[in-house]
Each structure stands twice: as structure tokens, then as C-alpha cells.
């Protein structure tokens, strides 16, 4: 059985004059210990997906329909009290900015002990021992001293390590990391990513990595979801998606990277911008920017269809696949 199973998740935001659909019928599964990447540009709905999985959406956002089955239990139906037992305990989240996640007026030790004692009946001394152990796991030098330090006394890379240690504190089954290294320098990013990968592999922790960086997804994950304007448009094994993207948007995203073009040559850009959620075009949301779009695409929303290992939501791909199939059978 999969660890996490998301079925037709739809998230809406109630605005003053209208209701905006931020996530539209998202479905995916995550096996135990699997690492999944969610990519897309700003406004695609990546972070909203992360927040929904933690059941952390706050007004005016709400889950309109769909299910989030975590270990077989639909967490969308849980009360806040029941959700608190899962959150931080069985699933944990790592955010982009460690300075916002850590409480600036509590020491690292106080924050870690507080989290531990909220979920387990431990003495303060026992909790501190576990905290020191976890800090050592993320290669924090002299962890005993760190416990008495405040977040501002530490560097950005060190803070993000502590966040990872805190996420691992209660041995969760799932970690959701939302752009965990975007605020860090490349050399520090590389260290943090390697650490995260190592910890997930050795502890069999599932990882959902939300990022805009396809290189990071390639290094870290086994499967990838590509999102656009609140919809899932392509999903499959990371290698397949990177080496042979099917959806024109995924192709565009990969081809737009500077390393895909010879130095000094024009980059292959995607024209236009991601639509605002208040004005999502009819039919395929990508059709106004898509070079393959035909009338059909502008009228009818493509369903997500499986081809081999990959699922794609695009009319043109299905037509190509059908002609191939007919040729093969003829």
C-alpha cells in the first residue's frame, strides 16, 4: 500500500467577489520511502499542494473536494486536534526560509525539546539527548553547545541543517520540503541536498521535494510531477521526464535552460506568462503559450492519460500516440 495517496484534490480560495481554484483535481501516489519532486513555476500550485498535504491551509483557502489518504486514513476529515498528532510526528515540513521557521526568542534546544515533549512522554534530559543525537546526524559540530544558542547566532546553512534535524526528530514517514535550499548558496545547497538524500535513504523516509530547479529534482528524486496553473500536466519517473519530456510545457521548461543551448545562441523561450488563477484560459491552460495548440486545445480540457510509465495531460501527445499505435497495428 502506498504511504500517501492523493485523489482528485481540489483547493479553492474564497475571495470577496469570486472563488479561485488554486488546485484542480490533483491525484498522485507516494510509496513508502519514495522520493517525489514537484516542479513548476511560481503560481503553479506547488506550495499549495505542500500545505494541503500538511492540512495547513488557512482562510480563505480550503479543500473543496478530494481525499488525502495518509497510511490509509483520509486526513482531510481529521479534526485539528487529530491532525496535530500526525503533523510534526508522522509527517514534517521543511520551508524555504529557516529564519522564519525557527522561533527567534527560543534557543535551538528549547524548540527541539518542546517538539519532542509535545508528542512523546519524555523527561527534559531524555529529550535533550535525542536532540543532540539528531543534530549529530546532520553533521552539526559540537551539538551540546548549539542547544543553548539562538537562531540568529547561526549561519543560514547551519539553520537549515537544524530545521532538517527538527523535521527528523520524531522519525516521520514523510518529509515535505518546500524549496529547502532556494535561499542558500550553491555550495551550501549541494551539501544540504546530499544530507537530505542520505537521511531519507538511510531512514526510509518518503520525501516530497517542491522546487523550481530541474537539476535538483534530477539529483534527488525518483518520480516527478510537473504542475501548471493549478493542474498536474505530467507525471512519471524523473529520468523519463528529464530525458524525454512529453508535455509541451515540460519540454519548454527544460529547453529554456541555458545549458540546453550553445553559448551565445538565442535561448528557446516559452512565450507569454503563466495565467493568473483568476483568468485561467478555457481548454488546456497552457494552450495560449503552446506552439502545438489547435482549436481543440483551446476548447476542451485534456485529461491526464497514461502512456507507458508516464502520465500526460495533452491532446496533441495523445493524437501522436494514437497514430503511432494505428501504424503499428496496421
Amino acid at each position: 500500500m502506498s504511504l500517501l495517496s492523493v485523489r482528485d484534490l481540489t483547493v479553492k480560495f474564497a475571495m470577496r467577489d469570486n472563488t479561485v481554484t488554486a488546485l484542480n483535481q490533483i491525484s498522485f501516489d507516494l510509496a513508502k520511502g519514495e522520493r517525489l519532486g514537484i516542479v513548476g513555476e511560481s503560481g503553479a500550485g506547488k506550495s499549495i499542494t505542500g500545505f494541503s498535504l500538511m492540512n495547513l491551509l488557512s482562510r480563505p483557502g480550503y479543500i473543496d473536494s478530494g481525499q488525502i489518504l495518509f497510511g490509509g486514513q483520509d486526513i482531510t476529515q481529521l479534526s485539528e486536534a487529530e491532525m496535530r498528532k500526525i503533523r510534526g510526528n508522522r509527517m514534517a515540513m521543511i520551508f524555504q526560509d529557516p529564519m522564519v521557521t525557527l522561533n527567534p526568542v527560543l534557543t535551538i534546544g528549547q524548540q527541539m525539546v518542546e517538539t519532542l515533549r509535545a508528542h512523546r512522554s519524555l523527561s527534559k534530559a531524555e529529550a535533550e539527548q535525542i536532540a543532540i543525537l539528531k543534530l549529530r546526524e546532520v553533521y552539526i559540530p559540537s551539538p551540546e553547545e548549539r542547544l543553548n544558542q539562538y537562531p540568529h547566532e547561526l549561519s543560514g546553512g547551519m539553520r537549515q541543517r537544524i530545521i532538517i534535524a527538527m523535521a527528523l526528530l520524531l522519525d516521520p514517514e514523510l518529509i515535505i520540503a518546500d524549496e529547502p535550499t532556494t535561499a542558500l548558496d550553491v555550495t551550501i545547497q549541494a551539501d544540504i541536498m546530499e544530507l537530505l538524500l542520505e537521511l531519507c535513504q538511510s531512514n526510509k523516509v518518503g520525501l516530497i521535494l517542491i522546487t523550481h530547479d530541474l537539476g535538483v529534482v534530477s539529483q534527488m528524486t525518483e518520480r516527478t510531477l510537473v504542475m501548471y496553473a493549478g493542474r498536474l500536466i505530467e507525471a512519471g519517473p524523473t529520468r523519463e521526464i528529464i530525458n524525454d519530456p512529453q508535455h509541451p510545457y515540460t519540454q519548454g521548461l527544460i529547453n529554456a535552460l541555458p545549458q540546453q543551448t550553445l553559448p551565445g545562441q538565442r535561448l528557446k523561450q516559452i512565450p507569454g506568462n503563466m495565467p493568473s488563477l483568476t483568468a485561467i484560459p478555457t481548454g488546456c491552460p497552457f494552450s495560449p503559450r503552446c506552439e502545438y495548440a489547435v482549436d481543440h486545445c483551446r476548447k476542451i480540457l485534456p485529461e491526464i492519460v497514461r502512456y507507458g510509465q508516464v502520465e500526460v495531460a495533452c491532446h496533441e501527445v495523445s493524437r501522436l500516440q494514437n497514430t503511432n499505435f494505428e501504424e503499428a497495428s496496421a
Binding site: V186, I188, D191, Q219, Q260
Partner: peptide, 22 residues
């Protein structure tokens, strides 16, 4: 170290030069 730390599209797992400290 800087060049090796850039995540590349075809990378399968991190393969950077580790720097000590920050």
C-alpha cells in the same frame, strides 16, 4: 568546488566537491 556544486539536468545523485565549513 563552485562548478561541481551546480545541479545538472542529467545528474543522478549529488557529486560535488565538499567544502569544509562555511
Amino acid at each position: 568546488a563552485l562548478l561541481s556544486a551546480v545541479p545538472k539536468l542529467k545528474d543522478e545523485g549529488p557529486s560535488h566537491i565538499r567544502l569544509q565549513g562555511e
